[in-house]
Design a protein around this nucleic acid. Sequence first.
DNA 1: CATGAATGAGCGTTCATTCAT
DNA 2: AATGAATGAACGCTCATTCAT
Lengths: 202, 202, 202, 202
Amino acid sequence: MPRKSTDERRQEIIQGLLEAMSEHGYAKASIKKIADAAGITPGLIHYHFDSKQAILLALVDELVTPQVAALEELARTADSPTAALMAMIDHLLAMGDAAQPDAVAAWVSVGAEAIREPDIAAAYSESLARLLGLFSDVITDGQQAGEFSTGDLNAHACAAALVAIMEGYFTIAASAREHIPPGSAAPATRRMARGLLDLPAE
Amino acid sequence: MPRKSTDERRQEIIQGLLEAMSEHGYAKASIKKIADAAGITPGLIHYHFDSKQAILLALVDELVTPQVAALEELARTADSPTAALMAMIDHLLAMGDAAQPDAVAAWVSVGAEAIREPDIAAAYSESLARLLGLFSDVITDGQQAGEFSTGDLNAHACAAALVAIMEGYFTIAASAREHIPPGSAAPATRRMARGLLDLPAE
Amino acid sequence: MPRKSTDERRQEIIQGLLEAMSEHGYAKASIKKIADAAGITPGLIHYHFDSKQAILLALVDELVTPQVAALEELARTADSPTAALMAMIDHLLAMGDAAQPDAVAAWVSVGAEAIREPDIAAAYSESLARLLGLFSDVITDGQQAGEFSTGDLNAHACAAALVAIMEGYFTIAASAREHIPPGSAAPATRRMARGLLDLPAE
Amino acid sequence: MPRKSTDERRQEIIQGLLEAMSEHGYAKASIKKIADAAGITPGLIHYHFDSKQAILLALVDELVTPQVAALEELARTADSPTAALMAMIDHLLAMGDAAQPDAVAAWVSVGAEAIREPDIAAAYSESLARLLGLFSDVITDGQQAGEFSTGDLNAHACAAALVAIMEGYFTIAASAREHIPPGSAAPATRRMARGLLDLPAE
DNA sequence: CATGAATGAGCGTTCATTCAT
DNA sequence: AATGAATGAACGCTCATTCAT
């Protein structure tokens, strides 16, 4: 007679890691702290996950999937590639601006952890690939529609540049938010995207 | 006279941390690993540094100061604000592109560590402030010279945007380099800077 | 249900510290030695106690509380203040004489540790205050009953003198027992108490 | 060409230990701290002393010898055994009262250290023996002069009792001075000595 | 499913002692 | 006689993981 379903428990544990990580970083987010944040006991963590790293991998998916879905939806419902791109930028930068500080901090920790853990690196890389693919598609659409021109750069390089901006804003937002004038990230990024893609000024 | 001077040893230890950190991240860059990388015994580390964190703070300075000096030199010797800005972008992005992978990886770890360690956060924030100041000065110069126009954004917000790009490219370069087409970072950033500052295409 | 209850383990650890301390002093009573004495592994110590100092604080309470209770009982059931005082002296000095050499040695280490550790000093001071209070009450009772006379000294100063004798005998018993003729501590102290309180010789 | 004589250096080191010990206790009085307190470098310590323990043994002698000499002088110049005893009590308790807090704290640490170090125990025991001998002599003199009567106790037991008081006052003075009313130690001890030795009240 | 005591390896740090200079 | 860098063992403590209950 299960007190809670496996899926629910896994969700709680993942959220516990998110909470612990945003406060202490991954290395110091101990199983005990994760368990406390999830409102369960330490022993139960390893019943639902093989290892601490497995929770992190699940968290990466948890962080990325809804964003990708939201961006896809934005791209699909936009009137034009330009409108789609601007909507995507606004959506992503809103996160860094303040909307989900825990998720942003956790994401930065994931990027750092990826330096030394191949499994995390793979998940991180795949997550970036998903984002890159979305931007790449929109840029290709815009090129074919004659809205965008990318000079010597291909669509992939331009997509990487846009993802880099997002990553950069997230990094600074996580550790030195005071250096980002509130509300400036999205407009600045839109201006930069216009330069990148040869769009006329707004 | 001691067997080696304190300054030499401190340098070796700082480089040992850089090496260990770029491979394992800060948390797993143990005193033992740092000592091995520096070719000394663990006990000696704490003869020269009060704590592991003190080494990291010294490393942050070591990483940032020469870059800031180089950027200042570039800004001073450039013919125009536009030329200065482009030279600075090229210089910084060259690092991320491949020139100093260890330093880039270490820097990303610093950003992540800053999330939870106030002292590191302070050093990280100050380092960003130094970079931001340089960009901010160039942008202000360009505005006054009539070369740049920043729309609704002030110089600081534009500087933050450029620093964010750099941070973002570094983050991706450290963990998922395969997503950055080699050689694309600097040209893409130059295009974005043109959009940000209302410069005509090259 | 865990393998052993927290209370049982805490007791075993406290006793392990008592054992290790009486043999090696507090500083050299390492977590490893405490664990060995308690028959457990070192890691478990910090599951049950936050720090080594926390064990010491628990031990101080463990040492003092039963003695205070015993002295209170003696004071309560004695026929007169004089009888109460003599019973208390006999009870306390019996410890130093030989009855609990481990506890006496540990207590001396606590006093020394109190010199440099404010938390230990507070616990030590409070323990002394409890003993002093008991003696002070008995002396005040004796004064009011016309049995004791303390000259220029107040009850508190006389209580302090009696507690000092006890501390002194404990100190010598712990490190240089050969200098205390067996069985002499209590009679000598009774004679001194008579002088202190103007009691006629037995 | 010696910059300072060996004897001077040894003295400085012993005083350095006294200073470091009274502040940090023996275990935490590191060679570095002793050297700092002595105004020399760590390496020099082991040129003048074989080990840290050897300094402590020298310190014990340093602490006790002048007191013993002073007490001998007091005993020799006193008009009577009673006067001698009271002068000795006043002299010793003046230390605990406030005169030399560093020495008192160090002495208590020596007593605690004696629990676990046989060599320290031997030195501590010998120091106590010297004090005991002095008191024992005076008491024997007083008995022979018909001034003192010690009941069932022999002179040694009475001497031990007086030394215990001193040790006890020192212990409390070192860690919980607030419990000793200032100026009360000597008068209280004189009253106790009168009871111990069947002297009439002052 | 769930608990929480238990393990053991590793961590950052301290330090008495040694020794090249 | 003196320096201060260097060593290596020990320390208190943390923690992912295991497992009896």
